[in-house]
């Protein structure tokens, strides 16, 4: 497998190389089969350094940093519940709704220029979408992340802890919103149509 590294193998290497780290493989069902690795935020920096410096992997180039916004979701499932009604045990169906809090995700695509292989795809997830949107910055590991992490901060509001220069990059400094979030609505800027055609 020269161009696609096996995600399971990389996961095994990471967990052997960085003690305490926890990696989840997120499968990709599409024909490209680019499975990604979800890192735990605590060890993400150590894992990134490990991937860069490992003699067999040598993932020395981060080509892409993307933000993804996952909204709060609600799952409904039907559960059979046993109930005791009037001393008789009956089975009844109940729908249970569970709220899954949304999160922001940062996706990193790594390649090795030295070994000519890749990509290895890393993901990191924030705790939620509103208050705790911190993720460790991987800019100290890959310099090419600097502007792209700034972009993810600008448009999604992911705060990269450890970034050397975390400022807005596309929007102006006084801007308050995060335009690429799914619940963002641009200001109407509007003048009523009736007024224009009056």
């Amino acid at each position: 497998m020269s161009d696609l590294l096996n995600a399971e193998e990389v996961k095994a290497q990471i967990e052997a190389g960085v003690p305490g780290s926890h990696v989840t493989v997120i499968p990709n069902g599409s024909p490209s089969g680019q499975h990604s690795l979800l890192l735990d935020n605590e060890h993400a920096f150590a894992v990134a350094s490990f991937l860069r410096d490992h003699p067999a992997l040598r993932l020395d180039y981060c080509s892409l940093v993307t933000g993804v916004d996952w909204l709060d979701t609600e799952t409904t499932e039907k559960i059979r519940v046993k109930k005791v009604v009037d001393g008789v045990e009956t089975e009844a169906e109940e729908t249970r709704k569970t709220k899954v809090p949304g999160y922001l995700e940062a996706v990193y695509h790594l390649f090795s220029i030295e070994k000519k292989h890749g990509p290895v795809i890393l993901r990191m997830r924030t705790a939620n979408r509103t208050g705790q949107t911190q993720l460790p910055s991987l800019t100290p590991v890959w310099r090419s992340c600097e502007f792209q992490e700034r972009e993810a901060f600008d448009l999604y509001g992911i705060v990269f802890v450890g970034h050397p220069d975390l400022r807005r990059i596309l929007m102006w400094d006084g801007f308050a919103d995060f335009p690429m979030r799914k619940d963002y609505h641009p200001p109407a800027d509007g003048v009523p149509v009736a007024e224009v055609h009056a």
């Binding site: 400094d173 006084g174 801007f175 308050a176 919103d177 200001p187 800027d189 509007g190 003048v191 224009v196």
Partner: peptide, 19 residues
């Protein structure tokens, strides 16, 4: 000027709409 959510004002009322 750059505002928190967009440009301030969103249009120059003297000019727009151009009646």
């Amino acid at each position: 000027e750059f505002g928190e959510h967009g440009l301030e004002p969103p249009a120059n009322p003297e000019l727009f709409p151009a009646l």
